[in-house]
Amino acid sequence: MLNPWRLRLLTRLDTLGTIRAVAQASNLSASSVSQQLAVLEAETHTALLERTGRHVRLTPAGVILARRARAILDHMDTVEAELRGLGEEPAGLVRLGAFQSAVHTLAVPAATRLGAAHPDLHVEVLQLEPHESMPALRGGDADLIITTTDFVEQPLDPDVDLVPLATDPIVAVLPPDHPATRRGAADLATFADEAWAFDMPQSYMATLTLRLCRQAGFEPRVVCRFSNYMLALQHVEAGLSIALLPGLAVDPRYRVATRELVSPVTRTITAAVRRGSPRRAAVQVVLDALRQNPDLPHLGGDE
């Protein structure tokens, strides 16, 4: 009999690529992961892994089982939720991944509304940036994600269904007394000598900001990096830097000025769910709540 936990480890290996990465994601040692995958091979009487030195990769049989395992695990979640709610009410756990600026503006409001309407439904909100959320969805660590299709460094997965939610402009964020606040739209070339606040390397906004600055003809002088937009807003508010941020990330509690870009840049905010198995009622109701989006009418409505 196949063990769901070991199947989950196999799907994570298919997504993450290395035993070490699977171990970190599962809070296990690498040797424990290897041992459990070896047990799975014994259970299936099939070679699932091909070992070359310290590296492993899935055999064709391993790839097939990993892909089928996602559907198996999704179906088990569906059955469990149906038994808990007797099929009458969305029930069970839905893990919703969202990038930082969407957590409090999209994910938490949706979870709050659903908690009041469906007491047997539990929405667990996970902060996952675009480069993290798609692997988490594919590996079964998230049931539904809010991401952006504009992050070209993270290719879209053909096994995922996309549901557009809204658009969000990228804006220049300036100290309130910055000279550029007396002008109109921001021309990035005029900020070549400024100190810049950046997101962490490889993140969506760090990659995008670097690309836009280089397109404007300069290499930005990065004086700080924050994984938290609130810290970046504090730094800009203090007059220590400027930044490019998504409009959703600009909290009105901070005394900063924003300007749209001369060449407008927007990101498409998108929900994503795995395809290939019947969608759980609980996942569908969370997706519907995100699409309705009554808290952010200025960003767009239902698709």
Results as ranks from 00 to 15, higher is better:
Q24M: 10
Q24A: 11
S31A: 09
T44S: 12
S26P: 06
T44D: 08
E41W: 13
H55Q: 05
T52Q: 15
S32Q: 04
V56I: 08
V33W: 02
S32Y: 00
V22T: 06
E43K: 08
E43M: 11
A21T: 00
A25T: 05
S29T: 15
V56S: 14
L37S: 00
R51L: 11
S32F: 00
V56G: 05
S26G: 01
V33N: 06
A38N: 12
T44P: 09
E43G: 11
S26E: 12
H55E: 08
Q24V: 06
S34W: 03
Q35M: 07
Q35L: 10
Q24E: 05
N27L: 07
T44Q: 11
A38Q: 14
V39L: 14
A42S: 10
V56N: 05
H45M: 09
Q35I: 01
Q36N: 12
A42T: 15
R54A: 12
R54Q: 04
V22Q: 03
E43L: 06
H55N: 15
R51Y: 10
A21I: 01
A21N: 00
L48P: 09
A23D: 06
S29L: 02
R51P: 13
Q35T: 02
S29A: 05
S31H: 00
G53T: 06
H55G: 03
V39M: 12
H55P: 07
R54W: 07
